[in-house]
């Protein structure tokens, strides 16, 4: 709460508000208690307003006001919007009459546009003239699996933005039942599985991920594993074992948070288990803090990464 900017958004550390820490801060605050106090509710409302203001005409979200491009943060923003609309009941009950209801419906409309933007994105390696030429010339990495997401438009697909795309799309698919969304989730999860490394984990996940010499990162391993809910245990076991072995030496609060959530999702650890709570990791950014709160509140139904809707 103290890190919040006067404009209602959150910075990573200080200065301008950014979409990623703002979305994560809203999500984290919503998991802090069943009946949040007025200050928290107001902070979330203002945070959502900040997000609404940064949504672009194409439906996507820019990373910060200084940037004129929609990027991967659209996934996180859509999750924050959906959680806000869900908390208010707007998605379940349809159009309402009051001023609050109009606000919630507007939030729902923004969420719809964000999901449409996400659906329309194709990484550069699978689309356009460059993708065609690469496939024609059979250059390395020219046959990427579909479904991945890029950090920035016009570039290749990577593990972290694809995992965030899974969280956003899976929630949307669960809420709407749309088969197109379900298919998009399936493809994105398949992308993550294909980019898994020999040790069972994930690094940033370029086309050269299959090289035996590259090592996994704990943070991306946690993200990808968390996004692969529901796969058969025999498929996921090497990754779960690696996550369990890695969590004690995660190296950062972000990595610990994702590994912990992934182990909760895959039933390897109880949501309330805090034997290695992240006291040993310093909090450098709002992102760290928000992820630490989310992971520590893995049992909260308001946690969009561990809740069954994903």
């Amino acid at each position: 709460m103290r890190a919040r900017n006067p404009d209602g958004g959150w910075p990573y550390v200080s200065g301008q508000s950014w979409t990623e820490p703002t979305a994560l801060a809203i999500l984290a605050l919503r998991t802090t208690s069943v009946q949040p106090d007025k200050q928290v509710v107001e902070a979330c409302r203002r945070g959502i307003d900040w997000l609404a203001a940064i949504q672009r005409g194409d439906g996507g979200f820019a990373p910060t006001h200084a940037v004129g491009e929609s990027t991967w943060v659209t996934s996180l923003a859509s999750i924050a919007l959906a959680s806000g609309a869900l908390a208010s009941g707007a998605l379940a009950s349809g159009a309402l009459a009051s001023g609050d209801a109009r606000r919630r419906n507007a939030q729902f409309a923004r969420w719809n546009r964000a999901i449409a933007w996400l659906l329309a994105q194709k990484p550069a390696e699978t689309s356009g003239v460059i993708g065609f030429l690469q496939r024609l010339l059979d250059t390395p990495g020219s046959h990427p699996p579909p479904g991945g997401a890029a950090w920035y438009p016009g570039t290749a697909a990577w593990v972290a933005p694809t995992a965030m795309r899974v969280f956003a799309m899976a929630r949307a698919a669960a809420l709407t039942g749309d088969p197109i969304l379900k298919h998009a989730v399936e493809q994105a999860r398949n992308f993550l599985l294909i980019r898994r490394l020999a040790d069972g984990g994930w690094n940033h996940g370029g086309w050269y991920a299959a090289s035996e010499r590259v090592a996994s990162y704990p943070e991306t391993t946690g993200m990808a594993l968390a996004a692969l809910r529901g796969f058969p245990p025999q498929v996921m076991r090497p990754s779960i074992d690696l996550a369990e072995a890695s969590i004690a030496r995660a190296g950062s609060l972000e990595a610990w948070a994702w590994l912990n959530m992934s182990l909760v999702i895959h039933n390897r650890r109880a949501p309330t288990e805090r034997s290695d709570a992240p006291v040993e990791f310093p909090v450098w950014t709002v992102r760290d803090l928000a992820l630490g709160i989310l992971s520590s509140n893995a049992s909260s139904p308001a946690n969009p990464f561990t809740a069954s809707a994903t």
């Binding site: 990373p63 940037v67 990027t71 950090w151 920035y152 016009g154 570039t155 990577w158 933005p161 370029g206």
Partner: peptide, 13 residues
Amino acid sequence: GAIYGWPKNVLHW
């Protein structure tokens, strides 16, 4: 990276 990602793939392309 908060804009271009990790890795900064825009520079590669």
